[in-house]
Design a protein around this nucleic acid. Structure first.
Length: 211
DNA sequence: ATCCCGAGGG
DNA sequence: CCCTCTGGAT
């Protein structure tokens, strides 16, 4: 089993080369914009997130400016991402909390990040790994689905899966591995109709053609 | 467990 | 029409 996992890590790295920062498809400049883009990415494609953040960050590029933004204005700007009332409230509150507690700077630890509005464990892990190049793995819907299909875990609880994966991945490889699972999940191993015929991992996947 | 909620694919 | 998209808060 260990060989299978190592083989999987190697093949994914070849299929989707690059480091965590380059594998993340969100458009942003700096940890603050990454954090906001990630909050907006909940239940939404990154393409739509990028289409709204261009205007959003043009008007409110940092925590201090977004902290003073009109809520209705923000709602209108991010509406296409869905859950727009919650998300608008969250990113404005998030910005105000950063200004009040950290002088507008984004903290770089999971514990501090999850205390902030709209930031759960998954989002915190994205900020820490992609924004600050620290060890960790963001377990989202894709990572959950592919981890199950590939036989990497028996669990469905995100935090449990996170611990399972961190248990055998090299710390500094974990983030990129997670992002590669996401890319593969989007392009090949989709939730609805996975393209097993065209999957380069078919020969080592326990779920090959059983989906 | 439930709500938030728009957009795109099949 | 139904399902899914880089979830989080209650």
């Amino acid at each position: 089993m260990r060989e299978i996992k190592e083989e999987l890590v190697q093949r994914l790295a070849t299929l989707y080369p690059g480091d965590a920062a380059s594998l993340c498809e969100l458009s942003f400049e700096g940890p603050f914009q990454l954090a906001v883009a990630t909050i907006l990415s909940a239940q939404c494609t990154d393409r739509i997130v990028n289409s709204v953040t261009e205007a959003l960050f043009g008007l409110f590029p940092d925590a201090k400016s977004l902290a003073g933004a009109d809520l209705g204005r923000v709602e209108t700007l991010i509406r296409p991402t869905g859950f727009y009332r919650n998300k608008a409230q969250n990113i404005v509150s998030f910005s105000r909390e950063l200004v009040e507690r950290y002088d507008g700077e984004v903290p770089d630890t999971i514990d501090r990040l999850v205390e902030l509005s709209g930031v759960g464990r998954k989002t915190a892990n994205v900020i820490v790994t992609v924004g600050f190049s620290k060890p960790g793995i963001a377990v989202d819907t894709h990572v959950i689905r592919l981890s199950g299909r590939l036989g990497l875990t028996e669990f469905t609880d995100p935090e449990r899966i996170e611990m399972d994966l961190l248990g055998w991945l090299a710390p500094l490889d974990a983030a990129a591995f997670g992002l590669r699972l996401i890319l593969h999940g989007r392009r090949v191993c989709s939730a609805r109709k996975p393209k097993c015929e065209a999957c380069p991992l078919g020969d080592i996947c326990p779920s090959f053609s059983t989906l």
